[in-house]
Every structure is written in structure tokens, then in C-alpha cells.
Design a protein around this nucleic acid. Structure first.
Lengths: 252, 252
DNA sequence: CGGGCCATTGAAGGTTTTCAACGTATGTGG
DNA sequence: CCACATACGTTGAAAACCTTCAATGGCCCG
């Protein structure tokens, strides 16, 4: 059995319960599906693309990211993962992990058997609803990245990413007075935003000069969230957190 | 009752049956969930963001696209939809449509009650598996767009989009000798690829000069698919069609 | 025939990349 | 404890890529 106190499972529950209302019994039952709690060093691979997707992997603490590498060596980071996030949703369909998942900092992950989760969803349909809602949020965030890459300039992209991270981390209690931990290197940021690391550097300097952002050694502080959001054309509702609490068609 | 001969439902069945194996009985049952067949003129709105997602809307013929508009007026097209595609997957979770869906050409769509679909999935679990597999393919295509926008230059982006469309349309029998119908304007292509329409024009000219692509009046011909794919860094497996036939965790 | 949409072209300018170099912090082995 | 290696951030200059602006021509349709 797992010592569930070793790592706080609060972010995980906060994330899912924030999407779909659950009873104490349901939350407890969900917690007991966790079969393993592992730690990964910073810069370790958490999941490999193509591996069997028989387990659901949840970030419990620390940050991670998904990425894909192109044939020419270039790398696109397609999402940052915060505590409470599911690393990969392919267990819902194909049985094979869709993308590499990499630890940005030291990370604790919980693993549960996909089969057990599906079985438990028969008894508690709210589990599957929560999972689909979380998947929808994941998709909404991804779509917003697409819009950034297609339509926002460097300054707006960077601002948007920081607004997104602030919102997501705040949701799981990891922002204090506008400050949060985000140890991505400028190269990482470049690979996420479709920019060179040199230009990321200059973009961050400009945000600093505008007194909107302070960022150093992995600690980010947003000084004026409202102004930053205006600059980024950030729409709070676009990440899909708002509407997901309501009953969808899958609800009985 | 609907006259199911008015519009061929083959693309729809080809799409889902291509992802998950289904029996004749299942295919027939799925067909009978269709409650309405509507036609939309080119440039008509098929779905509006925020509308209730109580129906599943499937493209039966013609092409469409999803898009989002930014506060500054810029528009990002986030996906093109071909026959067999589901317009919006939010019925799985939130109950509200996620994005605008717009008809590129004249389009026929089938609608079914989301509730009926979910109910039918109890009897035929393969329905939900097929839906989740289709959703995963949709996501995989979206991720590939993200990679394009972040890491590919104009020539590669355009080439990649054309390779993608060729593959998807061929899957539903709409490509003949490398030629297919794709009536997007250069402005549409720009909004999809994150390029100005002027640069789209020049990019297409270059592809024409390289004897890879012919494109005029909505008719596209790919003269050398292999070379185009090489140029685009196109990976056939990246769209997620391959692995989805296999049983995932949701399979019993 | 006129209007509107779309494709095309040229020229100028802006944004971002690339290349190359340098500084700093951190860690490791001698 | 120093020498060295490594990773990351920073800077300048040149070049590449793409956008914007403005104008023109073709085509379809009322």
C-alpha cells in the first residue's frame, strides 16, 4: 500500500473537483485508485511517446512538459503540466502514449491502472465525466497555444503564457502574491513559443522594462496581471475552466 | 424519419469504422441515431461558440472549418473539417460548443442527440470508443498544426497542410489521382497557417514553381506526394490514425 | 456595366533568426 | 582549492523571413 501522506494529493483533487462536483465518498474512492507514487528528477523522462498507455499518470508536485521532436531536430513544447494535470489522455482511446513527457523540476507522479479507473467509473460515472472535462480543458489550453503561435507576436505570446501559468498554478494554490515557481530555461520557453532563445531573452527584457514581469532563477512575479492580460489578449474563459462544471450530455 | 439516401453516409461510417472495428448491426444502429440531415450554404455558420452542445454534428459532405477570433480582430482557423468529421466534441464534457464552425463549401451535416448517443453507447460500448478515438485523432491533428505554427516555415507549413488534407480526404474516398477539392481562399489559408494572404500567395507560387502543387479555383493537385512530404517533414503516423484501431483501456 | 471578391505584384519596413562572442554561476575532478 | 567543463543568460550585427501597404487585373454575378 501507498503512504498517501508522502505527497499531498490535494492538487489532483482540487483540479478534478474544480471541474466536476464530487462527494467525499467519491473523492476518497478516487484517491484509493492510486497504486504508485514515484519521484522523477528534474530533466528526467516521465513518459515516452508510443509506450503502452495502460496507466493514468498524474502530476502531484513539480512541473513537467509535453514535447514533440521534428525530423530536423527542432522541438515543440506543446504543454506545460502543473500539479493535478494528467500527463497523457491516450489511455481513453488508443492504448499508446501520444507524446514525450519530461520533468521540468523534480516531480512526483501518481499512477493508477487505466482499467481500474474505467471499472470504477461504472460505479461512479462522475469519474469519467471529470476525466473528459479535464481532457477538454487540456484541449482548450492547447488551442489557445495554437492561436498564440498563429496570431500573437513574441511579446504577446510570452505574456499569454505567463498569464496562463499564473491562472493554472493559482487554481491549485501555487501562486503567492503574483509569484510562482516556473523553472523553464529561455530555450524551453523558445521551444514552447516558437521563438529563438535569443529573442525570448529580448522579449523578457522588454516585459521587465515595462515593469510587468520579473523572472529570474525560475521564480516569476507578475506585477500587474491586468495590464499583462490586456497586452496578451488573454481571455480568462478561453482555458475552458468556467463552463465545465455544468452537466454535459454524458451526465445522466 | 430521414431519407438516408439523400446524402451518402459513407464518409461518416468510413471515418469511425476506420478507427474502431464495428459489426454490421452496430453500423446500422449508429446510422439510425441520425435525427436530422441539414444543408448549409457555403460561408454559413454551422455551429456557434457557446451554443448548447446537446447534439453531435457530423459533416456528411463538403468542407468546413473551426475558428476563433481574437480581440484585435485577427482570426485563427484551428482545423479544417472533412466528411465524416465531428464538428465539436464538447458534448462529451461541458455542454457548450467550443468554437465557431463555418462552411467552406456547401455542406451537408447530420445531427444526432448527444443523449441518444450516450444511451446507445451503453448497449454498444464501441460507439463511445469510436468517439474517443475520433477525438484523439482530432487532437493529434491539432497538435501537428501547433508544431507547424511553431517550428515550420511558410513553405513547410503550406506543404504540411496539403499533405494532411490529402491524407484525410483520401481516407474518405475524396482524392482522385492526387486531385481533391479544397476551396479555401488564400486569406483562409493564411488564417490557418499564421501567414498573411500575400505570403500565402508567394508560397503557393513557389510550390508551383517546384512542380509539387497545382492549385486553382479550389482544385488542388499534388504532383509528387513523396517530395512534398519530405519538404513538409510530414509524418504519416503523426495524425494518429494508425494506432487507434487497437484496443485501449476503455475496451472491455 | 459596375461592384465585389479574390489573386497577384512591387516596394518598403518590421519582426525574428542566426551567428558569434562573452559573462556568470554551478559543479566536478585533479 | 584551483582548473576546467558545462549550462544558461546576455549582447551586437547582419541576414532572412514575413508583413504591410498600395495598386492592378481577372472573374463572377446582379
Amino acid at each position: 500500500m501507498i503512504d498517501r501522506n508522502l505527497v499531498s494529493i490535494r492538487p489532483f483533487l482540487a483540479n478534478l473537483a474544480g471541474l466536476v462536483r464530487m462527494s467525499e465518498e467519491e473523492l476518497a474512492s478516487l484517491t484509493h485508485l492510486i497504486k504508485a507514487l514515484n519521484h522523477h528528477q528534474a530533466h528526467a523522462t516521465i513518459l515516452e511517446e508510443g509506450a503502452p498507455a495502460d496507466r493514468i499518470v498524474v502530476i502531484m508536485s513539480g512541473l513537467a512538459y509535453r514535447f514533440t521532436r521534428l525530423a530536423n531536430g527542432r522541438r515543440q513544447i506543446t504543454a506545460f503540466l502543473v500539479p493535478g494535470d494528467i500527463c497523457d489522455y491516450r489511455f481513453l482511446s488508443s492504448g499508446h502514449v501520444g507524446q514525450h513527457v519530461f520533468a521540468l523540476s523534480q516531480v512526483a507522479v501518481a499512477r493508477m491502472q487505466a482499467e481500474s479507473f474505467v471499472a470504477a467509473s461504472e460505479r461512479f460515472p462522475v469519474f469519467m465525466r471529470a476525466m473528459l472535462a479535464a481532457n477538454a480543458v487540456d484541449e482548450a489550453i492547447g488551442r489557445e497555444w495554437m492561436i498564440s503561435l498563429g496570431q500573437r507576436n513574441a511579446l504577446q505570446r510570452m505574456a499569454h503564457l505567463l498569464c496562463e501559468m499564473e491562472l493554472r498554478l493559482r487554481r491549485v494554490g501555487l501562486v503567492e502574491k503574483g509569484t510562482f515557481h516556473f523553472p523553464a530555461t529561455q530555450t524551453d520557453l523558445g521551444d514552447a513559443l516558437g521563438l529563438s532563445s535569443v529573442h525570448v531573452n529580448r522579449t523578457l527584457q522588454e516585459l521587465r522594462r515595462m515593469h510587468l514581469v520579473a523572472m529570474s532563477k525560475g521564480i516569476v512575479t507578475l506585477n500587474d496581471t491586468a495590464a499583462l492580460r490586456r497586452l496578451a489578449l488573454f481571455d480568462v474563459t478561453s482555458l475552458g475552466y468556467e463552463r465545465n462544471g455544468r452537466a454535459g450530455a454524458v451526465t445522466h
